[in-house]
Amino acid sequence: MKLTEDEIRKITFEAISELGDQITPEAVKELVRKRVEAMGGDYKFQKGEVSSGRVILTSFGLNHPGIVAGVTKALGDANCDIQDLSQKLLGDFFTMIMVIDITSSQKDLKEIQEEMNKVAESLRVKIYLQHEDVFRFMHRI
């Protein structure tokens, strides 16, 4: 179960008033963690870091052999799971879109982006990596 920001804030305020005089940052953190876990929530959300989940990789440029191989090798090395792949040629122009799960990767999104920038440079194509949410928000109600 994923708790919303507001719910977590409410729990935190309750914990603060409950602790009264004995309040310390550690005590609040500990109490909030217990409450959230008791509710079946995921305490990790509190850390505010959302490096998990799926990202969309878009790549385009002039077509030449080895683009897909280059991109997928780098993703494989980073332990990224390709869940979907769609590729089209428009004349000489190469386009590829991938849905990638990066949860099991040892790297976070920023590091993978840096990795992909190197790949893009050596393959002379453009590669964009964006969190899936942005597409969900813009194209799905």
């Binding site: 969309i56 879109i97 964009y128 597409f135 194209h139």
Partner: peptide, 17 residues
């Protein structure tokens, strides 16, 4: 694919061009 090819390209076009 959960999103259409066109949808993804539209977003990329907006942000990049």
């Amino acid at each position: 694919m959960p999103y259409e090819f066109e949808e993804i390209l539209e977003t990329i076009r907006m942000t990049e061009i």
